[in-house]
Each structure stands twice: as structure tokens, then as C-alpha cells.
């Protein structure tokens, strides 16, 4: 049946799959073993990007009606990126519930649908790191820097990459 039990079953299943067959580029686990609705993921900065070499921690929080509604993802490591809010929340279209935008400015294929999994979400975040979208920025300052003074932006990103390595 739909409801919390479906959500937790589904999340447990995904956790099991991910532990058995880890996916390149990130590792995932529960923040607290008794709560399957909160996941900690470590995303490895994708190679050949500004974020290469960084280890960024994030927390994924799933709603009780997952997979009908999307989880939220928040970086706990320091992050400097046009599509990440200053408080760490990730802003990408697949994490937007389709109901947010009944007029369909974002294509249906880019919005949240129940088919998405932890894996597909994290892969979207990795692709976001390699190609920022400065058209609807969550962090306006970062977007401006990305567009207008790329050197400044690179410097800041290098700094956060170094910081993320120190913590390890």
C-alpha cells in the first residue's frame, strides 16, 4: 500500500542495492540507522571539473510520501555553486514536485517523478557540479561570479575543495 510503509520499504531496498553494488562517484548510507528517511551521501568532485578532488557531504531527507514527492538535498560541506543556496540546499529541477509549476515552464522530463531513485538524484547533482545552470540561480552571488569573473569563482571553488579534503 501507499504510505510510510511503501516509502521505507522502497528506501531500504535502494540502500541494500547501493551497498551491494556501489556506484562510481558517490557513497551513500543512513545518517542514523534507525531512520531510513535521512541519508548521508558523500559526493566525489567529478574529474575534469573545478570540483575535482573534493569530497562533499550532503544530507538527503525523504518525505513520508516518497516516492510521490521528492526528497530535499542539502550540502553540509561548504559549497560555492550557482545552483546551491547559501545554506547548502540543492536547487535542481528534478527535485521540484511537478505541482510547483502547473504551467510547465520546466519540461515534464526534467521534473520530479516517482521513478527517480537515490542513484538518479545523486547523478543529477554530479552533473550539476560539472555544468552549472546560471539562468535560474539559487546563489545569485555565485552565479554572477561564474558568469563575470570566472577566475574569482575558480579560486573560491579551489578553496572549498581543499577544505573538504582536510576534513577527511
Amino acid at each position: 500500500m501507499a504510505g510510510p510503509s511503501q516509502a521505507s520499504l522502497l528506501l531500504q531496498k535502494q540502500l541494500k542495492d547501493l551497498t551491494k553494488k556501489p556506484v562510481d562517484g558517490f557513497s551513500a548510507g543512513l545518517v542514523d540507522d534507525s531512520n531510513v528517511f535521512e541519508w548521508g551521501v558523500t559526493i566525489i568532485g567529478p574529474p575534469d571539473t573545478l570540483y575535482e578532488g573534493g569530497f562533499f557531504n550532503a544530507i538527503m531527507t525523504f518525505p513520508p510520501n516518497y516516492p510521490n514527492s521528492p526528497p530535499t538535498v542539502r550540502f553540509t560541506s561548504e559549497m560555492w555553486h550557482p545552483n546551491v543556496y547559501p545554506d547548502g540546499r540543492v536547487c535542481i529541477s528534478i527535485l521540484h514536485a511537478p505541482g510547483d509549476d502547473p504551467h510547465g515552464y520546466e519540461l515534464a522530463s526534467e521534473r520530479w517523478t516517482p521513478v527517480h531513485t537515490v542513484e538518479s538524484i545523486v547523478l543529477s547533482i554530479i552533473s550539476m557540479l560539472s555544468s552549472p545552470n546560471d539562468e535560474s540561480p539559487a546563489n545569485v552571488e555565485a552565479a554572477k561570479e561564474w558568469r563575470d569573473s570566472r577566475d574569482e569563482f575558480k579560486k573560491k571553488v579551489k578553496r572549498i575543495v581543499r577544505k573538504s579534503q582536510e576534513i577527511l
Partner: peptide, 20 residues
């Protein structure tokens, strides 16, 4: 059918956007 039900329920409770 239970996933369909949830999918439809979420969309309908979000409003007239469910027509799309």
C-alpha cells in the same frame, strides 16, 4: 496499482495541474 494511486493522488491534491 498502488504506485499509480499514490502518483495520481499526489498530482490531484496539487490542484488543476493534474489535468496535464
Amino acid at each position: 496499482s498502488s504506485c499509480w494511486k499514490g502518483y495520481i493522488g499526489t498530482s490531484v491534491s496539487d490542484g488543476p495541474g493534474c489535468l496535464f
